[in-house]
């Protein structure tokens, strides 16, 4: 990291994988062990920072009704993964910054996003968030806030969502680490594979992962954000409409390429591309490209689906129910 670092409300950004093998079975594969050790480096990195809160965007937590924000102060449960239940159970207790969660909810609404707070005993916090919390913040040294990934959201909505996080941090004067819990390529094995024989599901996936890692190592976060649609087509099983985590992360971190990037580790986990990546705000941009994606400030997409066409007219008086979607 030779670049001069700069101060920002978002002190650190990370991309972290969330499969439970890293927590419960890392000793079964040398690559998994390396990824787990990289989480320890993230922990050390966080300890050397002055953050107040960790904000987690988990691709393992889908939502349908807008964007859900975990706000329960001390959620506690014994978690079992739907699929990898044989690996064992994960008892956890988290500390959530519910005050920040509420600020974020207000910030989302200010930007016309549909959001809501989640404050229920026994709410099923997703595997990815639990695994990450256990590996970097098991002692709850820093309070966290976890946000969902809406299955229908596309880029505009997700970028605005990221900007709302930044708004909330600035309003509360808090310094944060922003984390996306996501694999790069997400193609898992579809048959039982002995852990010692784990490998990338596809060479093409691996090549795209390497391209992304090359960019991120150079701090080109906005570049990978702009390439998300291509990456979704090339290296993702299309379980959802779009590959969103880099849209969110880049928006939270300021939408530029001004970062020092570090790839702590990259290995296959159950066939997926599991990378531990860190980004720190820096003064010198790796590249200064002309981006072709839009930069929305507020969400103006389909909102009135429950109401009549009259309800859906925009302030300009147009009665086209979709006129508000022009962002």
């Amino acid at each position: 990291m030779s670049k001069q670092l700069r101060e920002d409300v978002v002190r650190k950004g990370y991309v972290l994988p969330g499969l439970p093998h890293l927590l419960l079975a890392a000793d079964q594969n040398p690559g998994w062990q390396k990824v787990r050790q990289a989480f320890q480096k993230v922990r050390e990195d966080l300890e050397s920072s002055d953050i107040d809160v960790i904000v987690v965007y988990s691709t393992f937590w889908p939502s349908v009704i807008g964007h859900q924000i975990q706000a329960r102060e001390e959620p506690e449960w014994v978690h079992v993964d739907d699929q990898f239940h044989a690996l064992g159970s994960i008892p956890y207790k988290m500390e959530i910054d519910s005050e920040f969660a509420r600020e974020l909810d207000r910030s989302c609404k200010d930007r016309k996003l549909h959001s809501r707070l989640i404050d229920y005993e026994g709410f099923p916090i997703d595997t990815g968030s639990v695994v990450v919390q256990q590996l970097i913040n098991k002692d709850n040294r820093w309070p966290m806030v976890i946000v969902s990934s809406n299955v229908y959201a596309d880029r505009a909505e997700t970028v605005v969502y990221g900007k709302a996080v930044r708004d909330a941090l600035e309003k509360q004067g808090k310094k944060a680490a922003a984390i996306v819990v996501s694999s790069l390529s997400n193609r898992m094995h579809t048959t039982h594979v002995d852990p010692k024989d784990d490998h990338f599901s596809s060479k093409k996936d691996h090549e795209w992962n390497l391209k992304y890692l090359e960019f991120l190592k150079e701090g080109r976060l906005e570049d990978v954000s702009q390439l998300s649609r291509q990456f979704h087509r090339e290296a993702r099983v299309p379980k959802v409409t779009a590959f969103k985590p880099f849209w969110w992360l880049s928006a939270v971190m300021g939408q530029n390429n001004l970062y020092a990037g570090e790839v702590y580790e990259y290995q296959p986990v159950m066939g997926t591309g599991a990378a531990v990546i860190g980004l720190t705000p820096a003064n010198k941009a790796a590249r200064d490209l002309e981006f072709d994606e839009d930069d929305p400030e507020a969400f103006a997409g389909e909102r009135g689906v429950l109401g009549s066409n009259e309800d859906m007219s925009d302030s300009s008086g147009s009665d086209n129910p979709f006129s508000g979607a022009n962002i």
Partner: peptide
């Protein structure tokens, strides 16, 4: 025997 909370509609199903 446990509590099932819907991850999408927790306001409706616990």
């Amino acid at each position: 025997k446990s509590l099932s909370v819907d991850p999408i509609f927790p306001n409706l199903f616990r």
